[in-house]
């Protein structure tokens, strides 16, 4: 029996919002440590890795490890039926072929349950090596989303170059070119407004704008986003999910042809 109860259904709604553009379906791997998801988009250029720890749930029971193949379009439709302040419970019998979502209104006057068929998805798991990144940038998530959106109007690629002074985002195309430079903030009163750069060595990498824009769908989950870069390895874009976990997006850099 698997059962996971979350008082804030908005977390699960935002997680679906953050992955449904990139992935049509994904396997939720549930164990007693929590729920993990790892899936590449159809082009195999980007990957989503999500982790929701069991201790972040209000109630969590997982008698035996269970992998639930979910159609994310269907799951999104079901989660749209939950109000933000509803309590959501996901539950499935062992080796079940369906999963049930129960939404309870705060005053318990309305209880809804939705049963969704599970899919048999072949699991192609990628080994992601632990990496000491040359540059780790933390900046306001809203700022990053704004930069990706503005620059994607200029070209299909964004060049991110990171030095100890700060980080520069550039794009060029038919209409012209654009550069956005963010300096490291010195002393900001609020942590979530800071721009910080931890640099071992300067890095300049080129990425496809459309994937960066898909990643920023996770902006509602966290005030801060973290970009980790090293020469010639995939970019990591990480959003924390409250105190319960994180979503990490990996994107292969473009290379000189």
């Amino acid at each position: 029996m698997f059962e996971a109860r979350l008082v804030q259904s908005s977390i699960l709604k935002k997680v679906l919002e953050a992955i449904k553009d990139l992935l049509n379906e994904a396997t939720f791997d549930c164990s007693d440590s929590g729920i993990q998801l790892q899936a590449m988009d159809n082009s195999h250029v980007s990957l989503v890795s999500m982790n929701l720890r069991s201790d972040g749930f209000d109630k969590y029971r997982c008698d035996r490890n269970i992998s639930m193949g979910m159609n994310l379009g269907s799951m999104t439709k079901i989660l749209k039926c939950a109000a933000n302040e509803d309590v959501v419970t996901m539950k499935a019998q062992d080796n079940a072929d369906t999963v049930t979502f129960v939404f309870e209104s705060p005053n318990q006057e309305k209880v809804s349950d939705y049963e969704m068929k599970l899919m048999n998805l072949d699991q192609e798991h990628l080994g992601i090596p632990e990496t000491e990144y040359a540059c780790v940038v933390r900046l306001p998530a809203g700022e990053f989303a704004r930069i990706c959106r503005d620059l994607s109007q200029f070209g299909e690629s964004v060049v991110i170059s990171c030095t100890k002074e700060g980080v520069k985002f550039s794009s060029a195309g038919d209409i012209g070119s654009a550069n956005i430079k963010l300096a490291q903030t010195s002393n900001v009163d609020k942590e979530e407004l800071a721009v910080t750069v931890e640099m071992q060595e300067p890095v300049t990498l080129t990425f496809a704008s459309r994937y960066l824009n898909s990643f920023t769908k996770a902006t509602s989950l966290s005030n801060v986003v973290q970009l980790s870069m090293s020469p010639d390895v995939p970019l990591v874009v990480e959003y924390r999910i409250g105190e319960i976990g994180h979503i990490r997006y990996y994107l292969a850099p473009k290379i000189e042809d």
């Binding site: 082009s43 195999h44 250029v45 080994g127 995939p234 990996y250 292969a252 290379i255």
Partner: peptide, 14 residues
């Protein structure tokens, strides 16, 4: 022109 490699060029399966 920049080429777009796949993630499987960087991460191994399994």
């Amino acid at each position: 022109k920049k080429a777009q490699p796949k993630l499987t060029n960087f991460f191994c399966k399994g």
